[in-house]
Write a protein that binds this DNA or RNA. Structure first.
Length: 319
RNA sequence: UGGGCUGUAGCCAAGUCGGUAAGGCACCAGACUUUGACUCUGGCAUUCCGCAGGUUCGAGUCCUGCCAGCCCAA
């Protein structure tokens, strides 16, 4: 009987995922990654495991999270960047932890993410819930051993199954936010308008393209157009000045063979954004993206992810 | 000091021949979302239009005085 190691968050998705795989004949081992931020998560995961009758291993990931995700997260913000912790957590903490355990069983790995793996490629999950953007940095060699059984399901279907299979967390609300508590950053900024006018002081973190929370009134909507961490200056301007037609990226990562010529694809530069046709000029682990239409607010630290129809090709981090 | 202008919510700002306070921004709430914060929906002047009087059935809108700020002249 093949073993599959399942990341069990304590939520509905991973619970249904585990139950489905068990039903289809796998030996299921649940793994709850506990970084200490969600006191009930491990308890809920245990309840799920108990109700379905499989083993649960709880792994303390606090130290790895701190070192590989949280510290870099704050460091990036104080450099004026907009980090995406989920994108870095997946390949550095979450999936390595699961594969470590799977190796011991010579098994597979599964999670409740809404993405699809087919023919050793990564594809988008069901429309409206797709989480593939967060997964483009997975190691390519993992894909052959990885399953996302819920990738094509609707959430309502998942919840229905959960209720049907007697899963204790069937009605638990979705988690949406970052999984660790974010401390207020002791950063202060001088805020200027593009025309040079001084507008006031600001505190905390800012993102290119941000509009709300600026506390500054003007005749129209204004957005953060520039962040200069060295000088501690933020610049605001009109929406036309937050559009990009080209972006440079670094730490490029591929889930396909590295293209040898410029890549025609669709590119998404934020999780909730839309895809824009683009041409990617690749140079080693950096690349320049040439968009066919302007994109809104490319923020350093966020990822640009490349798609062809439903397949995730790779991506990189905006410079 | 003489002449002129302005004073409407946190900011900007409409407000006509007097008729019972537009809009934008900010802010707040919600939707969306595996950090980004884009977008959308809703809320947001009832001791009220610098203050005090007056005219009028009725004044932000007319009249008088005062206060504050700005500009020009000195």
């Amino acid at each position: 009987m093949k073993t599959v190691v399942i990341g069990l968050s304590g939520g509905v998705d991973s619970a249904v995922c585990a139950a489905l795989l068990q039903k289809s004949g796998y030996r299921v081992v649940g793994v709850n990654l506990d970084a200490g931020f969600s006191p009930n998560a491990a308890k809920d995961a245990q309840a799920v495991a108990d109700s379905q009758g499989f083993e649960l291993i709880i792994v303390n990931t606090a130290a790895r999270m701190q070192e590989l995700v949280i510290d870099p997260f704050y460091a990036a913000y104080s450099c004026g960047q907009t980090p995406n912790p989920c994108i870095s957590c997946n390949p550095t903490v979450k999936f390595p932890s699961l594969f470590d355990i799977a190796d011991k069983y010579d098994g597979l790995v599964a999670t409740g993410h809404y993405a699809v793996i087919e023919k050793v490629g990564l594809y988008k999950g069901v429309k409206g819930r797709d989480q593939s953007y967060m997964m483009y940095r997975l190691r390519r060699e993992w894909l052959a051993r990885l399953m996302f059984p819920l990738g094509r399901m609707q959430k309502t279907e998942v919840r229905r199954l959960a209720a049907e299979m007697g899963i204790p967390v069937a009605n638990k609300p979705d988690s949406m936010d970052i999984c660790f508590p974010v401390a207020q950053q002791p950063l202060t900024w001088d805020i200027y308008h593009e025309n040079g006018k001084y507008l006031g002081k600001g505190e905390g973190v800012y993102t290119i393209g941000q509009r709300r929370g600026l506390g500054i009134a003007s005749d129209g909507r204004i957005y953060v157009t520039k962040i200069d961490a060295a000088k501690g200056e933020i610049t605001l301007g009109n929406i036309e000045n937050v559009q990009n037609t080209t972006l440079n990226i670094q730490n490029v990562h591929w889930l396909i063979d590295t293209p040898t010529k410029p890549l025609e694809c669709h590119c998404k530069i934020r999780h909730t954004g839309t895809e824009t046709p683009a041409l990617v000029h690749i140079e080693g682990d950096t690349a320049q993206i040439e968009f066919k239409a302007p994109v809104f607010a490319g923020a350093p630290g966020q990822s640009a992810v490349f798609y062809q129809t439903n397949q995730v090709l790779g991506g990189g981090i905006i410079v």
